[in-house]
Design a protein around this nucleic acid. Sequence first.
RNA 1: GCUGGAGUGGCGGAAUUGGUAUACGCGCUAGUCUUAGGAACUAGUACCGCAAGGUUUGAGGGUUCGAGUCCCUCCUCCAGCACCA
Length: 938
Amino acid sequence: MKNYDHKIIEKKWQEEWEKNKLYKVDDTVKGKENFYQLVEFTYPSGNLHVGHWYAFSVPDIFARYKRMSGYNVLYPMGFDAFGLPAENAAIKLGADPKIWTYEHMDKMRLQLRSMGASFDWDREVVTCDPKYYKWTQWMFNQFLKNDLAYRDVTKVNWCPKDMTILANEQVVDGKCERCGAEVEQRDQEQWMLRISKYADRLIDDLDTLDWPHEIKSAQKNWIGRSEGSEIEFGIKNVEEKIKVFTTRADTLFGVTYVVLAPEHELISKLKDKIENWNEVEKYISDTKKKSELDRQQSKEKTGVELKGIKAINPANNEEVPVWIADYVLAGYGTGAVMAVPAHDERDFEFAKKYNLPIKEVIAEIVGDRNKDAIERNRVCAIIENNGKVLCDETNENQTKFGGNYVLVGGGIEEGETPEDALIREVREEVGLNIDITKFKKIQTLRSSWYSERRKCFRTMLHHAYVVNIDITQIKENTKEAKLIWVDIHEAIKNFKKVDNLCQAKILEKYLASKDLFYDGNGELINSSKFNGLASEEARKKITEFVGGKLVNTYRLRDWGISRQRYWGVPIPIVYDIEGKAHPVPDEHLPWLLPTDVDYKPDGTAPLARSKELLERTEKIFGKGWKPEVETMDTFVDSSWYFYRYLDNNNDTEFADKEKINSWMPVDLYMGGAEHTTMHLLYSRFWVKALFDLGLVKDSEAYTMRRNRGLILGPDGNKMSKSKGNVIDPDEIVERLGADTVRLYLAFMGPYGVTVNYPWDPNGVVGVRRFLERVWKLQEKIDKNFTEQSNLLHKTIKGIDQDIKEHKYNTCISKMMILLNGLDKQEKISEEIYKTLLQLLAPFAPHTTEELWADLGEKESIHLSLWPKYDEALTKDDEITIALQVNSKVRAEILINIEETEEEIKQKALKNEAILKHLEGKEIKRVVYVKNKLLNIIV
RNA sequence: GCUGGAGUGGCGGAAUUGGUAUACGCGCUAGUCUUAGGAACUAGUACCGCAAGGUUUGAGGGUUCGAGUCCCUCCUCCAGCACCA
């Protein structure tokens, strides 16, 4: 037996495969179904790290498995080659970004080949190649023609260090995702794509996709659809209206003021009527100075009233004050809100700070709600002293508020207001006079129940107050009540026990906030003819009543794609003498990126400094015409690259329709979790747009998506040069081999789930040992020996199951178990060894190919067919089952699979260990689970 | 705060979905062989206990003959969003 020399083997087979074009994929193969497996292509950073290995070599296992299982598998690779690093390197080193990029791609192609992945390199896609970006530009033109692209002035995120606009997605915690500089807000004209037009479809179509829940939920979140109403408030003595967006039209009667964003356009229109203009103006300019970060971080709400301005509530014609405050965002909804402090936390905080009125219009519903019940309303008082609350001892066990005690309070009499009733009840029960300044309302609740005593349903509005009185004056016993102090937590527990849920809830709320604020749904009160309606119903009815309309609002903004950088796709636009934009006609595409440019960013676009571009523009379009000097966001490039793999040399279309039909949609897309709300959302939009233009047949490109996790350094931290915990894959490939690295990465844990695994240097050695043992096992082959191995069939079955769920770790574990079994044998058959090699082939392609060839096989193991198992042989005749007494395992016995429950029971009753635990006890029951256990209950 | 995900040995992780918890690998311990070992091989290894036995899947409760798995309450960690009306 020769030595297992991974270096020789891997080099040899990589060359062999390339020479024979082993992984070249035809668009159709007779008798085979196509399977398109995609991984995110890479940025040519120039160095392949462990993350790349994890991203590409592990999915390669699956591609190989599918290929051996009879599919025509496309598993392509390419380069997302435009982008900032090349340009930054160019600036720093004085190099040409193009040369820098192409050199790095050359280097990475070599490294990628060392993985032994089954990429079809003939289909390689490079986004900075004019042959590719010609079609990126062409698609932009299509979008422009169909009103999906437009130019507009918007607030943009500006990175002062990278000197470019950033998308919202590229701003993390107010900082630039790339360089970490604090992002500024700027008004800037830029090219926009109407992704927001697709907001609903981007949410709704998620239902059709086999994607993990976590991505769907994150995308929904990101799009941020909220269903609500637009309602117009009139302004006293002014023609203008204030349009607000609210999700809680049911609380319209509770509006006590209206708030505009400081940037709201109405403010300047109202300038003449605003009595405190100076103060208002100052607040607005202060707001402008604040960065987005400051604005988010200042927790305390601030605002200024527009004195002299009154808004008119369309529901009841009430006049309410108008404020401006920076907690209202100009960019969301209508930039104006109706404030309902009783039912919105932010409004509540603001109202408390500025002493604005709080009006309750929603009663929380506790328990069931029964409209036909007899109504009797009630007040209750929370009188607290040192964690104890004053209660009235009661012997009315049969009522809803049965139990030993209830909060001080009682029914509201005919003609009384709740406040009257409260004052009266407190006086009667506690024997004290209180006045209106000594109590405050904390909540109104609705509850219904069945009264056993009165044999009918009853319902009540329960008005709860906190009452401040001098507790030394309390008389323990009045005519009306017998008072006791109860620990609040105790009282809550007891109220819950006796189903007095209202008072339990009130006390909980009292402990939590002590204030009148409830933001859930409920039943309308203090809302004129809408009283008694449920929130959900009232939202529609009240919106209708005031002539508003039901609308959806989204957090998602249109996608600004202009970048003031050099190394990207030139936006194919030219401006005429009047400055009007025109698309560069398709026949002039690709609209080439000029090369006579000083890359240094100075806040203006580098392309503005290209003579060649200007001359080209004037030559084609006429004197005085100017080129667009912005380039596209690189997320544009990656929004459609998976189509180009299908037909990467096509000069007349971005891809042939037939070829698209035979491959799309992508069957499996594996990639990083960081793309959830960026690439994955953008490319979904892009595909939907192409679909609407009739250019592709599917409105979703990726049938199944799985996100992978991260490989961490041995210390459990993210690998980084500064932490010194970076694992260099090249070094490990050199020392232990590519197959070992592939196998180890697959063995760390399940793939396709967002879990991060630390790299264990010893663990790699462990899987290398496994490969060596497989290598050595060949010595046990006896050509004259045949065997039938149940273990083998179980292994194949198990791997078939696990590999489909990308649990490569347990697949490998099962092969290890098989190896352990075979290793114990004196000799093994050649057949079983070959089958083991086939099972291992997707994981360790080089090693298995070598061993396969050594056994005299002429054709590649990777062209062989995946082993099949015989179901009958996956089951043993004899199995071990557990014997339990009272569900505790006391013994294990070997039984024949044919044995009946009765036979097993008899065996069990003869078992010493079992008898010991049965001694002196009577058998009550026996539970038998076939092939698992027998449980004797005594 | 909201949304999503996750808590199992010293470590990475298994557990046919309600049926013998801790597979497989790493590490560790002892031994064999070796000039040597960061090599190979053999045996052991969840925890407490000499043992019989007992305990254990973040904590507490529940359903069940039986719970890592199902239900309720709570805690911790990770990720995303965050004054979104």
